[in-house]
Design a binder for these strands. Structure first.
Length: 319
DNA sequence: ACCACTCCCCGCCAAT
DNA sequence: CCATTGGCGGGGAGTG
């Protein structure tokens, strides 16, 4: 995998500004003086012509579609898919064929579908459109229950805000947890949302409410190395275990134990990237009872072993 | 790769 | 009547 440094966003008429904005914020803002990577970033349209938005103003892109050929990452925000020009679809196909990654936000998945990039692949979109996406592209494996998913260089994400999560996922892969967490902090979004998490959450971007579980979640993050039972956690939240489980799911989209494991894996990943501690020690610091348990979950959640992850991350940095 | 043991999770239902 | 709570049981996942 080559280091990400060139990003192209493809836009057409009736564009949604927020989805474009998410991509601009993540990849098109120069934060180099604060230690962030800088990308060669371009918004492209057919012929470089202005495109309309759904909000009554127009956008003047900086480039035409030829620019897409230089990108390592090609992103498609939400645009109506009915009349996307064939030349756009062709560029997306070419990009994927030469090994660039192709991502979409929200209904942008339909554009990838029309380009044939979803055939046989796991993908997602906003839950409102999931059925329609599945009908239009029968061989796609649409999962309406995740925030984002990557399959063979094709990345799709659910409604608007999940696009932020997908961008952070890409940054985490490319530059590591430290940068990704810092970017999340800068954008004031939670760094801790895994792709497999449910779309149906009460507060996608958790607002601090007095009865929110957020203080408990923060506390758990600070104490990942300790053991936690749901009975324990429920007591801490002043609830019965049953009610706690229900509130936990409605706020986070997952269950207490799965959330814990997800956070532990995230921490383990960061420690593997940054230090040279033995796996055994990392397992202990993350709250896994043994290195074997860490390996077990790492395989399930990341698809590799901790060792392999560490060396591939090192290799990518050196390159 | 397996096994035994524990704990989690979720549908169900009655109580509030 | 509806919404929320919380206890129960069993299938299943995590753990060592």
């Amino acid at each position: 995998m080559t280091m990400l440094n060139n990003v192209a966003v493809v836009v057409c008429d009736e564009l949604s500004a927020f989805e474009l904005g998410v991509l601009c914020e993540a990849f098109g803002t120069d934060r180099a003086k604060d230690g962030f990577p800088r990308y060669d970033f371009a918004v492209c349209s057919p012929g470089g012509r202005p495109v309309t938005t759904k909000h009554g103003f127009t956008v003047q892109p900086s480039h035409d579609l030829d620019r897409v050929e230089f990108a390592d990452l090609v992103a498609v925000p939400a645009i109506p898919w009915a009349h996307v020009p064939e030349e756009v679809l062709a560029q997306l196909r070419k990009a994927h064929e030469r090994g660039a990654r192709v991502m979409s936000v929200c209904s942008g998945a339909f554009v990838l579908g029309q380009a044939g990039l979803l055939d046989g692949r796991a993908c997602t979109t906003h839950w409102m459109y999931a059925d329609e996406l599945q009908r239009m592209f029968p061989t796609a494996r649409v999962d309406p229950n995740v925030l984002y998913v990557e399959d063979d260089g094709v990345l799709t994400s659910a409604g608007t805000a999940a696009g932020v999560d997908l961008c952070l996922y890409v940054v985490r892969q490319e530059h590591g947890s430290a940068i990704a967490n810092k970017l999340a902090r800068r954008m004031v979004v939670p760094p801790h949302r895994d792709g497999g998490q449910a779309q149906f959450v009460q507060t996608p971007v958790p607002i601090s409410r007095s009865d929110s579980l957020e203080p408990l979640l923060s506390w758990m993050m600070e104490h990942l190395d300790e053991e936690h039972t749901v009975e324990d956690l429920a007591r801490r939240a002043h609830m019965s275990p049953r009610s706690f489980a229900r509130h936990f799911r409605s706020e986070t989209g997952t269950t207490p134990h799965r959330w814990l494991i997800g956070q532990r894996i995230l921490l383990a990943q960061q420690l593997l990237e940054e230090g040279d501690e033995p796996i055994e020690a990392i397992a202990a610091r993350c709250g896994f009872g043994s290195a074997a348990t860490l390996r077990h979950h790492f395989a399930r959640w990341r698809g590799t072993t901790p060792q392999a992850f560490r060396s591939s991350f090192r290799g990518r940095r050196a390159a």
